[in-house]
């Protein structure tokens, strides 16, 4: 499989209109997809529709359901905790997209070059992405310990005072972002590396003749050419950062107080702590709309960036 196939397949699937135009659904292939259609209908589409239905109900587990129309959404609009969780999500997401994109692109430029032990070092670099988030989060929790944690000790070695890490409302989100960056920078690296592998040689040769330096070549040749790949990475990172759950849940459960309570944590607590099923379903609907809208926006930006590239 060539590395360019990701953007290709995404591009094919991206604009529904364009894809449908070339549609030639041959009935004899229906049967192959039938089992998957049935399973997906049961475990994916049914939950979507049921969630939509429940979002209009005032439904607590143990109590009865009552139709409230858009009442849950109206209540959410006034729910301070919900609004704050949106803010936390935005803060977390912006950092957890921008930083991995910058580091991941830089890492891709490094791993694109030949050097001794490249394969081994790349494997090590990629491992965080595969590691079980819960297991790693437990280790981070120990490392963040204010008195006994290794991170504060390492800081003290370079003359920096101890940080409260996840125990201070001001530092908790940046600290959680650090864990997220640790996990997902490799994914960005792999995607951009795929883009670099397909770059043509010629522009660089003529640029060298023209006396361009490394920065110029990166800025004016490499970056525009791999930009579509970076856009794909941005789309994926945005969706994944919005959905981030495991690390936050294990390390802080949304605390201290509600300082790191993102939309997803808020949703979990409403549904499975307070059992407010209708209310939580309304959150899911909002969540879903945000994700779809952002994805469409980013995919649109990607389509445009292809023209500019």
């Amino acid at each position: 499989m060539t590395s360019t196939s990701l953007p290709a397949s995404l591009a094919n699937a991206a604009p529904p209109g364009a894809a449908a135009a070339s549609q030639d659904f041959t009935p004899r292939y229906w049967l192959f997809s039938l089992p998957a259609v049935l399973v997906i209908a049961a475990v994916i589409v049914f939950p979507w529709l049921f969630t939509l239905y429940m979002s209009g109900q005032d439904w607590k587990i143990g109590g009865g359901a009552e139709f409230v129309g858009l009442g849950n959404f109206a209540a959410l609009a006034k729910d301070q905790r919900f609004i704050e969780s949106m803010g936390h999500t935005a803060y977390f997401t912006i950092l957890a997209v921008v930083l991995p994109i910058v580091f991941g692109t830089a890492a891709a430029l490094v791993f694109h070059r030949e050097f001794p032990f490249r394969g081994l070092l790349r494997t090590i670099f990629v491992m965080p992405m595969m590691a079980t988030p819960v297991a790693v989060a437990l280790v981070w929790t120990m490392m963040f310990h204010p008195q006994l944690g290794v991170l504060n000790y390492l800081l003290s070695l370079v003359g920096i005072g101890p940080s409260a890490w996840v125990y201070d409302p001001n530092t908790v989100i940046p600290t959680l972002v650090m864990v997220e960056v640790w996990h997902w920078t490799p994914l960005v690296m792999l995607i951009v590396l795929g883009g670099l592998a397909g770059l043509p040689r010629e522009p660089y040769e003529s640029a060298l003749i023209d006396g361009a330096n490394d920065w110029h070549m990166f800025r004016h040749i490499t970056l525009p050419l791999v930009w579509p790949f970076i856009m794909v990475a941005i789309v994926i990172r945005t969706i994944d950062a919005l959905k981030a759950f495991d690390t936050i849940f294990v390390i802080t459960q949304g605390g201290p107080g509600t300082a790191s309570e993102t939309l997803n944590i808020f949703l979990y607590l409403q549904a499975f702590q307070f059992y407010k099923i209708g209310y939580a379903s309304a959150v899911v609907v909002i969540f879903f709309v945000i994700i779809i809208m952002l994805s469409l926006l980013l995919l649109y930006a990607r389509q445009k960036s292809k023209w500019n590239a």
């Binding site: 994916i44 979507w48 429940m54 759950f245 997803n264 949703l267």
Partner: peptide, 12 residues
């Protein structure tokens, strides 16, 4: 793209 949690309420 959908958060895993959103499947969980109905399935639960």
């Amino acid at each position: 793209m959908t958060p895993a949690l959103s499947y969980l309420i109905p399935l639960f």
